[in-house]
Design a protein around this nucleic acid. Structure first.
Lengths: 346, 346
DNA sequence: GTGAAAGCGCTAACAA
DNA sequence: TTGTTAGCGCTTTCAC
């Protein structure tokens, strides 16, 4: 029966019980005891420790020897497979460089800052935060992903406009002249960019367009799509022949709404997504979409962050011309599959 | 230009530069300075800190005041939406109880143990670890999810057999007498249990069955399903009328293989999954599946773990009759949707 | 082979 | 309002 004193037992308690000195306990628990501490003594120490339920205090240990460096990765939602991929890529890059990773699932800056404060964090990689200002108090280097680079700090994002332009061009070439754009309600930089890119590409080709916005889930998308599709023009058909969606999930919502109205994809309606998650290949027909390599985004961002960290040395990273300012863009690739086809002849 | 001495600056360095005492610096950085430290002094301290790139050492702080308690959650793969949900549920429960959570994405025990060692972890919740023995060295309370309870420690898992029995019964009632079971290759407890449950339920009703196993991804499933479906019996039809799958992803693979062979679901072939992830509702027809509420699994497991932690007090949790031994089972619910129908008349 | 002693950087009394 | 001091639990020389 262990002593149930107030606080957890320390190595000193163990030493006392085992009848040895505290430093011997330390030796044993660091594994540095081989050939320096006798068999008998070691056993005695371990027994005493077990009896007391002793566990070495990691904080004290780290204060002394300095633990591995840590970087915090913040994402708004880990269930979303896109963010999960970003995290995975970033984590791999960090570990490869010998950094420990701590995950922070938070939508707003304040909460991320709180997570940073409690732990010995050396750098922060923040993905898709809601717009607005610099990421953290200061002094801790940060890189943001998929967002505007806040003053003087690095950012990595997708170069999505060219892919969307290509997508619109693809539709145009198939013969579409009028499209709908189903947008996400989420107010992050990337979605604004998507809206602008689609608009610009359509305008340039003289294609007419309508749009709607909804939350990033299947039901919301289905409803929004149903409303959009019910706005019939001539011939009982909707006033557009293709729906461009901000996200694969939205596209699946369109599939379901279309099916419910007896419209076939792509026969009556072409549909496209963005992301290229599992869903895109699971549905029938397979979805034409824009591939956003999340792991690569995470890994690239992490590498930039670590580069800043190395270079920064002891200096704070928030100087006027801090290294790592500016924005790297990763290519997004259009994947043409079976959900796009020439429009039905009216 | 900050001094780039060897090691990071300490509060003492800041104090020296600002011409104040070290404890004043401490006061300022703890936010306890209001009304105790003069305006001027505070500004001086902050300036000096910025100049040096000073950040308070979290390890030292925690050694003194004791940080929040931490629990580690281990999952084999955070991109898998099921595990992401488990993590989310467990994390919510932990935070509600005032615990910090750290995520460990590891498949094997050793790596989890390493993650535990480095940090001040008070308890461990491990999900779906490969079979084999006790979870950790000792002394750290642990609960496992979706796995055999290792000696004397708690576990929470789904009570999946009744749902599978019900599923087989449902197929039987529809008229199916011969099924295929597409299994996962993954060797965790839950999959063994699924195999046994399906076998037993079929045997009891005199239904014949075949099975195959493959990795948990779409392509592997499609190939395995294609092989299964090509083993034609009489009439050019496969020797079964329904495929029960260990997982929704596998079921989608079956959809695609069936479609490629010109078989319709559920007209020619009924298909079922397990999990109820997004995919299940995205495909057409919507998939009959067994709902496995991952968040609830995570939350329940975490609550058990925290209960053990409270009760355990200062004592080690690995006693002979440690609290929390035994296995809680959560219900799994059969969701009948459109992918199951009476078999075509031969 | 084992013990004594000096800190790691910070906080929290208490003194001035 | 500010400075002094005594540790938090551990690691790590250096004596014995």
């Amino acid at each position: 029966m262990p002593v149930s004193n107030g606080r957890p037992p320390t190595s000193r308690d163990v030493a006392r019980l085992a009848g040895v000195s505290q430093s011997t306990v330390s030796l044993v628990f660091r594994g540095a005891a081989s050939g320096r501490v006798g068999e008998r003594t070691q056993r005695a120490v371990r027994d005493a420790a077990r009896q007391l339920g002793f566990r070495p205090n990691a904080d004290a240990r780290r204060l002394r020897v300095g633990g591995p460096r840590m970087v915090l990765i913040a994402v708004p939602d880990i269930v979303n497979p896109f963010f999960a991929r970003v995290f995975t890529g970033a984590r791999a890059a960090a570990r490869e460089a010998g950094f420990q990773v701590v995950l922070s699932v938070q939508r707003d800056l304040e909460s991320v800052a709180a997570d940073v404060a409690g732990q010995q964090i050396d750098a922060v990689l923040a993905c898709s935060l809601e717009d607005g200002g610099r990421p953290l108090d200061d002094a801790v280097p940060a890189v943001v992903l998929d967002a505007e680079p806040p003053q003087g700090q690095g950012s990595v994002r997708f170069d999505i406009a060219p892919a969307l332009t290509e997508l619109v061009e693809h539709l145009h070439r198939l013969g579409h002249r009028s499209i709908a754009h189903l947008r996400s309600e989420v107010g992050t930089a990337t979605f604004r960019e998507r809206a602008e890119a689609v608009d610009a590409a359509c305008a340039q080709r003289g294609m007419s367009r309508v749009h709607a916005a909804c939350a990033l889930d299947l039901d919301a998308a289905r409803e929004a799509a149903a409303r959009l599709l019910s706005a019939q023009a001539d011939g009982g058909r909707p006033p557009f022949t293709a729906v461009v969606c901000d996200d694969d999930v939205l596209a699946v919502g369109v599939y379901k709404a279309a099916r419910a109205l007896g419209l076939s994809v792509p026969g009556d309606l072409s549909v496209t997504g963005i992301d290229n998650v599992d869903l895109a290949l699971a549905v029938t027909p397979e979805l034409t979409t824009v591939d956003l390599p999340g792991e690569e985004l995470g890994a690239t961002g992490m590498r930039r962050l670590l580069a800043v960290l190395e270079e920064g040395g002891g200096a704070p990273a928030t100087g006027p011309h801090a290294a790592g300012g500016g924005c790297v863009r990763l290519p997004a690739r259009l994947l043409i599959r079976d959900s796009t086809a020439p429009p039905a002849r009216g």
